[in-house]
Design a protein around this nucleic acid. Structure first.
Lengths: 230, 230
DNA sequence: CTTGACAACGCACAGATGTTCTTGTATAAT
DNA sequence: ATTATACAAGAACATCTGTGCGTTGTCAAG
């Protein structure tokens, strides 16, 4: 969208003002900041900006205006503005640059343990991550690794693995696999071989598991490993 | 903090109104919502709330008020309120639950490379992390690992290591060590043995380094390892 | 040149909004 | 009983603030 210098300046000022004061500027505030002597000129341009749907305005309400960050970002106008959310924001224009991932519990890297990965309600802990690192954060969840069966893949006991929820996996990927007959989820390398699934630990002292494909369902793929050393 | 029902209701309404409209309510808005017929009563209670530092108010500015989420959370009053930030916020009430750590560049896990860990200005990249995981975030920085000399410590080529800046290290800790004579920083296990420092890689195919303690300075200790698999 | 759309200006006005003053009630302390 | 304090109400006031309208300047199209 093409915007006059003046209107850009107005947007910038509004953003800055809200960032600074937590409430929107009045028409005269804007005028003073943008070297517009007449209130009506401010109103005129505000109306334009509202027509472009870059701002919202409540008639006859003092300071009744707000920026529409979603639109501003669509139009690539959010960059220079103060307090611009990096990617997301809630309905109010408040900036949220992080998201939360539920830590659902422990996952076996030795013996399988029971984990229900689809139920986020009983998450006892939440990890906050940044979306510059991850896409589709709503599909993510985290598990604490228990056991050392993935040690050769450099996943240690106590590490946190972040998984993307998905039902299918490529051969060789590290996945959380639900084993039907045992009511358990385990962390293994995944290989589909005909109608058999091979779940391979990354530690020679643990055995591989061969199971009918029907008895194994992939609960998610490991997309990240985080280790805290202190 | 003990608060009358009326004032709680006012806080709740202000939060809800801001959540809804993106601009604060007027005194009369509040009065209507909280069944207060007189504007002065609203003002009276607002003044009280301001004295408790639960809200901020700009004199003689219409709708010039905002909630102080930090205080509200301190007092345990943020719970029922609309749009409450999950954990932290900056001075303006915007929610920020993360902080940024500079990614200063690459660190050798094979051959040492030059890194100046104290200069944050030339960071080419920033990682955003959450402080529930880390303390003293201002002392943190990150490096991308290059090489596989720490592979036995489960630190792989391409991993990001997060370090806490410190000059001293305990024996056995994984540190970024600056080698004076070579103008280089490297990632190794640290051992002080008399007046000699032993820098041990975690890969048998790389040699240990023995250096006079005077020639080695610790630039930071690894506190976390992050690996992205996709 | 004229015309019309657009941008900009200044001013006056009305409605929106915070402030102040006076009054009244209830409760607790003196 | 008296006083002090917190809470509440209503009305009058001052000012903040958005709106409307007439005017001017620019610029491209007719």
């Amino acid at each position: 969208m093409k915007l006059t210098e003046r209107r850009k300046k107005m947007l910038a000022f509004i953003a800055e003002f809200v960032e600074e004061n937590n409430y929107p500027p009045s028409i005269r505030d804007i005028g003073a900041a943008c070297d517009i002597s007449s209130t009506s000129v401010v109103k005129y341009n505000l109306t334009k900006l509202e027509q472009y749907k870059l701002i919202r305005r409540e008639k006859e309400v003092s300071r009744g205006l707000s920026l529409d960050w979603a639109r501003l970002q669509e139009e690539g106008l959010a960059d220079g503005l103060a307090g611009a959310p990096s990617t997301h924001q809630d309905g109010n224009g408040s900036a949220f640059s992080f998201f939360q991932v539920p830590v659902l519990g422990y996952i076996a890297a030795g013996e399988p343990i029971q984990v229900e990965t689809t139920d986020h309600s009983n998450a006892d802990e939440w990890l906050e991550l940044n979306e510059t690192l991850y896409r589709n954060p709503d599909q993510l969840y985290a598990l604490r690794v228990q056991g050392d069966s993935m040690i050769d893949a450099s996943v240690l006991d106590g590490d946190i693995v972040i998984l993307r929820h998905q039902e299918r996996a490529e051969n060789g990927e590290m996945v959380a696999a639900w084993i039907d007959t045992q009511n358990e989820t385990t962390l293994k390398h995944f290989f589909l071989e005909g109608d058999q699934v091979r779940l391979r630990p990354a530690n020679p002292s643990y055995p591989e598991m061969f199971l009918p494909a029907a008895e194994v369902s992939v609960k998610g793929k490991v997309v990240s490993v985080i280790r805290q050393l202190e």
